[in-house]
Amino acid sequence: MQISEMTAKMAAGNGFIAALDQSGGSTPKALKGYGIEDGAWTTEEDMFGLIHDMRCRIIRSAVFNGDKVIGAILFERTMDGSVDGKPVPQALIEKGVVPFIKIDKGLEDEVNGVQLMKPMPELDALLTKASALGVYGTKERSVINSANREGIAAVVAQQFEVGKQVLAHGMMPMIEPEVNIKSETRAECDAILRDEILKNLEALPEGTQVMLKLSLPIVPGTFDPLVSHPRVLRVVALSGGYKRPEACVELAKNAGIIASFSRALLDDLRFQMSDAEFDAALGEAIDAIYAGSTIKTAPVTA
């Protein structure tokens, strides 16, 4: 796929984005969910080797392809690795899956109800490397815990500042200001976030676009103005702690938003499964998330 083909697939492709970007702190939990306990490795390299093997198994699966999975977000170590001798981004592209990379380095402590991203002094070098490997875009995550307008404005401003740096490398930024779904002021957070994003979208250079990765709103349709905005290529949703059935129900309530799920995609996969069992479990998850993303057929409650 050329860049123009990737952009077209992101803009209008039927499917969803797989988040395969668990990083250092979340890797042990991801491995435990996969059926590999803490004692199975002795070094960090061993741990990352095990999670890489899991991701390779997913990418190799016949059910994981560009028909329903239009993109995948990678951890930097995964991007630097290979699948059967091919660089991971190239292996994805050959399956019709557009590669992204997680670029944030974690979160600062909470101030004004939000957690900003830590500094990324080596970002330009990472973007240069990722672009050379054929990676289409990036993903960068902040967290919003309460409806503090000053805090939310700071999160969005930082996200768009990083996004402009990504755009300068000819790559697509996926801006992710995650609203904590356990927040007691979640509806207010969603509304403030939408308004702050709209302000920053209007300030983007003419002819540029970004993608947005957002928590599913507590009030369906809250993000409709973002979905239809000409400077937004696509709005995708994180599962945010919802189990897959509930995540798909909430997703189906929001027209124009597709999934970018991690745990909700991987929950039923186990290291001990045969290849046939693994493919069946992965295929079932892909079908459910695809339906919630595109057909919008998940059961919708009143």
Score class of each variant (00 low, 15 high):
170 G>L: 02
279 D>P: 05
15 G>C: 01
144 I>E: 12
73 I>M: 11
168 A>P: 06
263 R>K: 06
86 K>T: 08
33 G>D: 04
242 Y>E: 11
166 V>D: 02
288 A>H: 10
214 L>C: 08
175 I>S: 14
65 N>T: 01
58 I>T: 01
161 E>Y: 15
77 R>M: 13
140 E>P: 07
1 M>L: 13
299 P>F: 11
44 E>H: 04
289 I>Y: 03
170 G>W: 05
269 L>Q: 07
24 G>Q: 11
175 I>L: 15
107 L>V: 04
173 P>M: 13
151 G>I: 01
251 L>K: 02
134 G>F: 02
239 S>N: 15
222 T>G: 12
263 R>W: 08
76 E>Y: 03
40 A>H: 05
150 E>P: 09
152 I>A: 08
171 M>E: 09
171 M>F: 10
258 I>L: 12
85 G>W: 05
101 I>A: 06
166 V>N: 06
24 G>M: 14
206 E>H: 11
28 P>Y: 06
250 E>R: 01
6 M>W: 04
251 L>C: 02
223 F>Y: 13
271 F>R: 13
28 P>N: 00
246 E>P: 09
34 Y>D: 04
240 G>S: 03
172 M>H: 14
289 I>V: 03
191 A>S: 14
286 I>V: 01
274 S>T: 05
31 L>K: 05
197 I>Y: 07
262 S>N: 12
33 G>F: 01
138 T>L: 08
252 A>Y: 08
106 G>L: 00
204 L>K: 00
157 A>I: 00
250 E>M: 01
213 K>T: 02
241 G>H: 13
177 P>E: 06
183 S>Q: 13
92 L>Q: 00
114 V>S: 06
232 V>H: 15
127 L>S: 10
78 T>I: 10
291 A>M: 07
99 P>N: 01
26 S>R: 02
14 N>G: 02
228 S>C: 07
47 M>W: 10
150 E>H: 09
70 I>G: 05
199 K>W: 07
157 A>E: 06
45 E>V: 11
301 T>K: 12
207 G>C: 04
30 A>V: 10
183 S>N: 08
65 N>M: 03
251 L>P: 01
205 P>R: 02
116 L>V: 01
222 T>S: 13
251 L>A: 00
35 G>M: 12
237 A>F: 11
175 I>P: 13
101 I>E: 08
3 I>C: 11
147 A>M: 10
209 Q>H: 10
58 I>R: 02
181 I>V: 14
191 A>L: 07
83 V>Y: 12
287 D>A: 11
297 T>K: 13
199 K>R: 05
